[in-house]
């Protein structure tokens, strides 16, 4: 609430009296926003440490946070680690990009055509509930142990959410605003360009965010199941550390997977909130 109230002031240009006055509260606001998740992380680490200290599992199975942290820092020096990160991010990027293109195209088609909607509208929602891991046997059968198999499942995971974002965005465009635009002379393409697309944007961004989460999950499942020889990825690293019973290594890779997921998600969140607050919609914190 307070966040929303202070938004407009952010636009005061730097150097004006208002801008200068705001410099301090703005830093404080950043802190206000950072400390709760920071505290949560510290508590999680503490619990982890306590479980380790309790001796529930031997330390070579469940290492302490500090050990994992050291291993992680150690990984940073290894080219193989960066190669793995690069491979995985590349797959994520390509898969997500295809999903965006495909999902948007399908979404636009479905939102425009009544026949398509009744034909595949509910199928899209149905696909969303399908656990992506269930696609892999088929994907491997179709494409073998290949990049295509992984991309296939990533796209099947992400595209429905994106398509859904488009459809619900277009469906929710206020009829009153469409009427206003019609009176102002918008029709066909200009109606799409000036009204439908901007009005559907918040829902589209929400769809992209959800699509990303599905893409990332599907990708990790894929990398564990579809192992391509001599191509290190984060999934392969996980398998590798498990086979060698290297718990600190395993956990450090898991941390990396978590961090990348959260980081990208927070980018989508901030874009979504930027879009929403600029038009006076409530800011959603997820």
């Amino acid at each position: 609430m307070s966040e929303y109230a202070t938004r407009p002031q952010k636009r005061a240009t730097a150097g004006t009296e208002r801008g200068a006055q705001l410099a301090v509260p703005r830093g404080k606001r950043l802190w206000d926003r950072t400390w709760p998740p920071l505290l949560a992380v510290i508590i999680a680490l503490l619990i982890w440490q306590i479980v380790v200290l309790s001796g529930w599992r031997p330390e070579y199975v469940l290492p302490a946070p500090l050990t994992v942290g050291q291993t992680l820092v150690g990984q940073f020096g290894e080219p193989k680690f960066w190669l793995a990160v690069a491979t995985t991010l590349n797959r994520a990027l390509v898969g997500f990009a295809i999903s965006v293109l495909l999902g948007s195209a399908i979404g636009i088609a479905v939102s425009r055509s009544r026949v398509l909607r009744s034909a595949i509208g509910s199928l899209i929602t149905g696909l969303q509930t399908m656990p992506s891991i269930a696609w892999f046997p088929l994907a491997i059968l179709l494409f073998g142990l290949s990049e295509q198999a992984i991309a296939f499942v990533v796209v099947l995971g992400a595209a429905p959410s994106i398509a859904n974002g488009v459809v619900s965005g277009v469906d929710d465009v206020s009829p009153q605003l469409q009427r206003v635009a019609q009176v102002l002379g918008a029709k066909g393409m200009s109606m799409y360009r000036h009204v439908m697309i901007p009005a559907a944007l918040p829902s589209y961004v929400a769809g992209l965010k959800q699509g990303w989460a599905f893409a990332w999950r599907s990708l990790m499942a894929g990398e564990l199941l579809v192992i391509i020889a001599s191509r290190p990825s984060l999934g392969v690293q996980l398998q590798f550390f498990r086979e060698f019973a290297n718990a600190p290594g395993l956990l450090s890779i898991m941390l990396v997977i978590l961090l990348i997921g959260v980081l990208v998600d927070s980018i989508f969140s901030s874009v979504a909130n930027g879009v929403r607050s600029r038009r006076g919609m409530g800011v959603v914190r997820l």
């Binding site: 605003l177 102002l184 002379g185 918008a186 006076g280």
Partner: peptide, 20 residues
Amino acid sequence: ASLFPWLTVRGNIDLALKLS
């Protein structure tokens, strides 16, 4: 009033002029 919420005041008027 039904203004376009994603546009500024100027943007709302500008769109009307553009469409005219």
